[in-house]
């Protein structure tokens, strides 16, 4: 198991290098000129080249990339010669737009993204698996048909539609919930967990409607298949209670595909739910990434891209570990 984790950690580092290099290259090839953007509207060619030197973009490509990577391992000096400032480890560069440390920007955005992801995840896992199981247990009944129908509707509703509808209904019309504020990004803040839940409930529901639909379908299909297995018949033939047969013998065996999906989705969501964060004005990673990409802010875009890749890979390792915990036939190697 330790060997497995170490090996995966090794491939994680290699992959992060690849992701950073590709993003870096794409940025160089792109049409945007961060120096011109940083210098502003009325700009003389001299001031553009000054800005280019200040951003370090006058250096050869490989030197720029090398400098960037160096910052991942130690603090480094950054900026134009003579006007250099210290960028402390972990140095992900400074924003071309605000000259702020990128690490600080990430640290500020991350709690918002976490807040949104965690609640949504819990909500859609419970509803998705719960309804999927209920449908599987009552296969062919009106309950089953209703759940499957609702899932089809849910999966075809885009986030902007559900999001705006929820805002209109609960905030504008019924005044049941406050409009999302940037002041709350943790259940442990001064406003307390209640305010945290109220603040993120609508984005959670919007995400859960979209995600739980596929969880319902995967759970239902797999549970129906599992309930038809021989070992379920054996469990019944032993005289076990229906609850034990369903949960201990059925769900544990039928749930593995859901674990895979969950791992993938957690990884993706932690990289930033771009649309949802936009609609609910949550300044998380997705929100920040979109603005950085539009304004050609390379260091911020790079950092968020790498972080997203990091989350996806870590989630994959977590899925493998969960598989090994659930299924004794799985050997980690």
């Amino acid at each position: 198991m330790m060997t497995f984790i170490l090996r995966r950690a090794g491939s994680l580092v290699l992959l992060l290098f690849a992701v950073s290099f590709i993003t870096f290259t794409l940025f160089q090839l792109g049409p945007s000129d961060p120096a011109a953007a940083a210098c502003g509207q009325e700009c003389t060619p001299e001031r553009v080249s000054e800005a280019r030197v200040a951003l370090g973009m006058d250096q050869p490509f490989f030197l720029q990339y090398f400098d960037y990577v160096r910052g991942l391992f130690s603090s480094r000096m950054i900026g134009a010669p003579g006007a250099q400032t210290l960028c402390e480890w972990p140095c992900l560069g400074k924003s071309f737009q605000t000259n702020e440390n990128v690490a600080d920007i990430i640290a500020r955005s991350l709690p918002y993204t976490f807040s949104m992801a965690i609640g949504a995840l819990v909500l859609w896992t419970i509803t998705g698996v719960g309804l999927g199981l209920m449908a599987a247990l009552r296969k062919g009944s009106p309950v089953d048909k209703f759940i499957v129908g609702a899932a089809s509707v849910g999966v075809s509703l885009p986030i902007p539609v559900t999001g705006l509808f929820l805002l209109l209904l609960f905030v504008n019309q019924l005044h049941l919930l406050p409009f999302t504020t940037n002041e709350i990004n943790s259940p442990f803040g001064p406003q307390g967990p209640g305010a945290w839940v109220a603040n993120y409930l609508l984005p959670w529901i919007a995400l859960a409607v979209l995600f739980s639909a596929s969880y319902i379908r995967v759970t239902r299909t797999n549970m129906i298949e599992t309930f038809g297995e021989d070992f379920i018949r054996t469990a019944r033939a032993k005289g076990l209670a229906p609850r034990t047969v369903t949960f201990k013998h059925g769900v544990r065996a039928g749930i593995t595909p859901v674990v895979t999906m969950l791992g993938m989705d957690i990884g993706l969501l932690l990289g930033g739910a771009v649309l949802t964060e936009q609609i609910f004005s949550v300044p998380g990673l997705g929100f920040t990434a979109v603005h950085a990409a539009i304004s050609g802010d390379l260091p911020v875009t790079m950092a968020i891209t790498m972080l997203a890749a990091f989350f996806v890979i870590v989630a994959n390792v977590a899925v493998d570990l969960a598989y090994a915990a659930i299924d004794p036939r799985v050997r980690l190697q």
């Binding site: 021989d230 070992f231 018949r233 054996t234 469990a235 065996a253 659930i326 299924d327």
Partner: peptide, 11 residues
């Protein structure tokens, strides 16, 4: 049952 592998719970 007939097939003891599928009749026993793998987990």
């Amino acid at each position: 049952f007939q097939d003891p592998l599928s009749a026993l719970h793998p987990f």
